[in-house]
Amino acid sequence: MLALDNPVRVRPEARQQIMDTFRANKIPDEYGLRVGIRGGGCGSSWLLGFDLPGPADEVYNVEDVRVIIDRKHLLYVLGAEIGYEPGGFTVDKPAAGE
């Protein structure tokens, strides 16, 4: 069961890459990793990027990573796992019931 204080998972390799990116680019602490979706239905894709939280956002501390999720996207991203491979970040969403 997911706790709302951990709506997504950040795998260790992704956490390290995120922290390295923050340090290398001197990104201010007010920023976080935005997790969301773009589009809808069969044409939806994952949205990952560094951003500042806005009034419609929820902010979470997941594995020491500040994660920003728009309240409208929360239901769609619950349970997602953010990873990192040599080609870039990955997002896996377990099927319902897993």
Rank of each mutant, 00 (worst) to 15 (best):
K93H: 15
K26V: 04
P28K: 04
C42V: 14
E98R: 10
L78P: 01
I82L: 07
R23L: 12
K93T: 12
Y76V: 00
L33N: 14
G32K: 14
A96L: 12
R11K: 10
V65H: 12
Y60K: 03
L47M: 12
R34C: 11
G32C: 12
D5R: 11
L48I: 09
G79F: 07
R34W: 10
P86I: 08
G49L: 02
D92E: 13
G40Y: 10
N6T: 11
L47S: 15
E13G: 02
N25Y: 13
Q16W: 09
R66I: 01
N61S: 15
K72S: 08
V59F: 02
R11T: 05
S44M: 14
P94D: 09
A24N: 13
P55M: 06
F50T: 08
G87D: 12
I68N: 01
K26F: 08
H73L: 00
R34A: 15
V35H: 01
P55Q: 10
K26Q: 08
R9E: 06
G43C: 12
L74Q: 01
G54P: 02
G40H: 11
T90A: 06
P28F: 07
E81N: 10
R71I: 04
F50G: 05
G39M: 06
V62S: 09
I27S: 03
D20C: 06
K72Y: 04
P94A: 10
K26C: 03
I69D: 11
M1W: 00
L52D: 00
V77A: 04
R9A: 12
Y31I: 07
N6D: 09
G87A: 11
D64R: 14
K72G: 04
N61T: 15
G39E: 03
K26I: 01
A95Y: 11
K72F: 03
G97Y: 07
R15A: 13
L33S: 14
V65K: 14
G83S: 09
Y31V: 08
